[in-house]
Design a protein around this nucleic acid. Structure first.
Lengths: 224, 224
DNA sequence: GCAAAAACATGAGTGCACTCATATTTTATT
DNA sequence: AATAAAATATGAGTGCACTCATGTTTTTGC
């Protein structure tokens, strides 16, 4: 972990600089790095994987990796962001869920997230929680992390808005999304240390939390 | 940050091994390290301070530092734990607060905490939030961090219990302390990025949050 | 008081994330 | 097509957290 000067580089998959071959190659290399990293992280864990191994597997020079990701940590965060994008897509395509009650939809989101995070627990515990922290803008981390929070918060905000529109929920607004993000955070913290078979303790906790939250929300009191 | 094998060493100030001179020397060295570290962290920040500088200022060999603190990060966490101990002592000696309303007492705790953390913001943002995470037991971090959470949670639990006994609060139990810890966490996250003069935005947010929380709590619904 | 053992201190050494001067490839210009 | 300019790749080099074999101090048992 370093904090010093750092290139404002490689913010996301879409980049407008260069054209033609350049753009194409960069995208390819980026994907190659992320693929190599995800495989190694899943197999050996974040801390046991060296950046040399990653660049080796991606068939680029050691230094090149840092042209794409300013930090090993950023690389992992970026990879977990793509995981989040996949999660959002998954949710939007699960037709059965769209008509399910709100509590069930929220349960599904967190549950599926945990499923997908499973191979990367060491990193999640040590670093990712920080990036999930809602509304963390000025982290001494790279500037990237804010992107993740925003993506996630917008997604939850969207889910809650729909529920508001359907009358499943009073107006909870941005604050509602924020609070749910905090709950998500707390649940993942619990999940990390849960060694019950199938992590069933956490699932039970999640279920209860959502039920309790529903009761609170139904009572109103969200106006400031 | 490393995760590999690590000595189960230097857990706290009180240690029973050895006797006489040995115990005394260890305590002295430990204090010297913490003092040197706190001064350097306050002056240059956590990341700009090298372990060599710390051991130099504490007048011990480079390697010795790691006999006391398995990690630079652990050293800082340990130092922030002592800061927390100081905070708890401060609270218990502030007589004016003991008779103040609950919301005011909770406000004072978080406010004072922020005041004391001010010189160490870079580290708080990057690492400390993780350790504050309520109930994180199995972090891939060193084993130390759990201590801090427990100390803090017990303290809050105590404050809330008193309020319950005085009838200021319905029974909120451990869960109440847990939720307050989450609020504390969220507030500090906000505080870190708050550049309003005197961090007044955060203070306003804290005030509003506590008022809203009071309303929620008064409504009950804390039985599972 | 002395020898053996245990605890602790030491600092040269190591591994790894990250940098930077240079080389190579791609784009822009004519 | 040739050249200049810009973007990117390269990998030897660097700094720093952390290790470990060895030396030194303290304790224990007699």
């Amino acid at each position: 972990m370093k904090t010093s000067t750092r290139r404002a580089n490689s913010s996301g998959p879409a980049q407008k600089s260069g054209s033609g071959k350049r753009l194409e190659n960069k995208a390819k290399t980026r994907k190659a790095i992320l693929k190599a990293a995800s495989e190694l992280f899943a197999k050996k864990g974040f801390f046991q994987t060296t950046t040399d191994e990653i660049s080796g597997k991606a068939k680029i020079a050691d230094g090149t990796l840092f042209n794409y990701f300013p930090t090993k940590e950023d690389l992992a965060l970026c990879f977990l962001d793509e995981l989040l994008i996949g999660l959002i897509e998954w949710f939007q395509q699960e037709e059965r869920l769209q008509s399910a009650p709100l509590a069930e939809r929220l349960f599904a989101i967190i549950h599926q997230h945990m499923e997908r995070l499973r191979p990367y627990q060491d990193f999640v515990g040590a670093v990712y929680l920080r990036a999930l922290q809602p509304a963390s803008k000025l982290h001494p981390l790279s500037l990237q992390s804010q992107e993740y929070n925003l993506r996630y918060l917008r997604f939850i905000r969207e889910v809650l808005s729909q529920a508001e529109a359907r009358g499943e929920l009073p107006q909870v607004g941005d604050l509602g999304a924020y609070v749910f993000a905090l709950l998500h955070l707390a649940i993942i913290t619990h999940w990390l240390q849960d060694d019950s078979p199938g992590k069933e303790n956490t699932l039970a906790l999640l279920d209860r939390s959502l039920k309790m939250a529903s009761r609170f929300m139904a009572k109103g009191g969200w106006d400031w």
